[in-house]
């Protein structure tokens, strides 16, 4: 049982020399040293597995959002670690804007097949056909309208929880979001009316029609994600690696030439070595110039990068200081 000591030099704080003012107010319980201290990546992994299992246990009908992007690729590995040798206790769902990079869709389908799990594709084309989404032009960014398709799919399938790969380091609205983030019956996030979240005790209770968005990798950074992909030897779509691509310079970023983005008058098409830091809507996802052809090189670049992930790559987040916050309040994940 406990060993109580008054002299606890071994456990004295390292602030020993601090002006001689370190104190030990009372006897302290000695705890045996752990055989091995978990690294920060192992600690983050265990936290995420715990979160996923809580969702599986407490939610009646959850889904995991899988886009083929790096964050949701990490989610799938975490789900394998959480639930194997069993099957995933939820289907995978992709909100397909119809503006995805073809390489990413090909990767998505291949990965789902490998896992032998079920994929639901919620298609924005359907929302457009049904008149639920009205676009100003065929080629405009579809990111803002994902929420409509997502919320429709949640209602159609009766999901009470959606697991997503959002991280708090991405954006300041995300920095203030809970791991279990409550959404009302309109799918809205109310930043000033969030449930307090203490210790690792998550409250997943909802009324019919409401749902919870769950972010198991909330506490991961972009660098953690790449280090984990490297450690686990995970495959990612090859557009994450440096490759030659026709791009134009627009605003502060590069835009990839595709059937959605054509040079305007005065814009010059350049063929550059680039890679994508995020993969989203082709019309607003910007690559960065890079020579990183392997994961090790991406990690090296990420470790010293001086631009945030979204600052470099998402034109839609630059339209106003609060664009992510506004989209989230409308039901974006």
């Amino acid at each position: 049982m406990d060993v109580i000591l008054n002299q606890m030099d071994e456990f004295a704080p390292v602030a020993g020399p601090v002006a001689g003012l370190v104190m030990k107010n009372e006897p302290m319980v000695i705890k045996r040293r752990v055989a091995r201290q978990l690294s920060h990546l192992e600690a983050l992994e265990s936290e995420a597995i715990h979160i996923m299992r809580e969702v599986a246990a407490e939610c009646a009908n959850p889904a995991l959002l899988f886009s083929g992007g790096k964050d949701s690729i990490v989610l799938l590995r975490l789900a394998e670690k959480a639930f194997r040798p069993g099957r995933f206790p939820f289907p995978l769902m992709h909100v397909d804007t119809g503006h995805n990079f073809p390489e990413v869709i090909e990767f998505r389908d291949r990965r789902v097949k490998q896992l032998g799990e079920r994929l639901i594709v919620a298609s924005m084309e359907d929302s457009i056909k049904q008149g639920r989404v009205v676009l100003r032009s065929e080629n405009q960014s579809r990111n803002p309208f994902q929420s409509v398709t997502l919320l429709d799919a949640i209602a159609e399938h009766g999901f009470d929880a959606c697991i997503g790969g959002a991280r708090r380091d991405e954006e300041k609205a995300r920095a203030k979001e809970r791991i279990f983030s409550f959404r009302d019956e309109f799918g809205q996030w109310d930043p000033k009316n969030q449930r307090p979240e203490l210790w690792d005790l998550y409250n997943a209770r909802v009324h019919p029609g409401e749902n919870i968005r769950v972010f198991p990798i909330s506490n991961w950074t972009e660098l953690d994600v790449w280090e984990y992909i490297s450690r686990e030897g995970l495959e990612v779509p090859h557009i994450y690696f440096a490759h030659r691509r026709d791009v134009i310079r627009r605003g502060s970023g590069l835009l990839p030439i595709s059937h959605l983005v054509q040079p305007k008058e005065g814009e010059k098409v350049e063929n550059l070595m680039v890679r994508f830091r995020t993969v989203g809507d082709m019309s607003c996802t910007c690559p960065v110039e890079s020579t990183a052809v392997g994961i090790g090189e991406i990690i090296a670049e990420t470790a010293v990068t001086r631009i945030t992930e979204r600052g470099a790559t998402r034109m839609d987040d630059q339209t106003s200081e609060a664009s992510m916050e506004l989209r989230k309040r409308e039901g974006y994940f």
Binding site: D169, K176, K192, S218, T221, E321
Partner: peptide, 28 residues
């Protein structure tokens, strides 16, 4: 600095999480 919702309503949301790392540790 806070969110638009905070500025508009003169409130502060309870907890914001921030991340940084040094070669020795990762901090939350």
């Amino acid at each position: 600095d806070g969110l638009q919702a905070e500025r508009e309503q003169g409130i502060t949301i309870d907890v914001a999480y921030r991340y940084f790392a040094t070669p020795k540790r990762k901090f939350i």
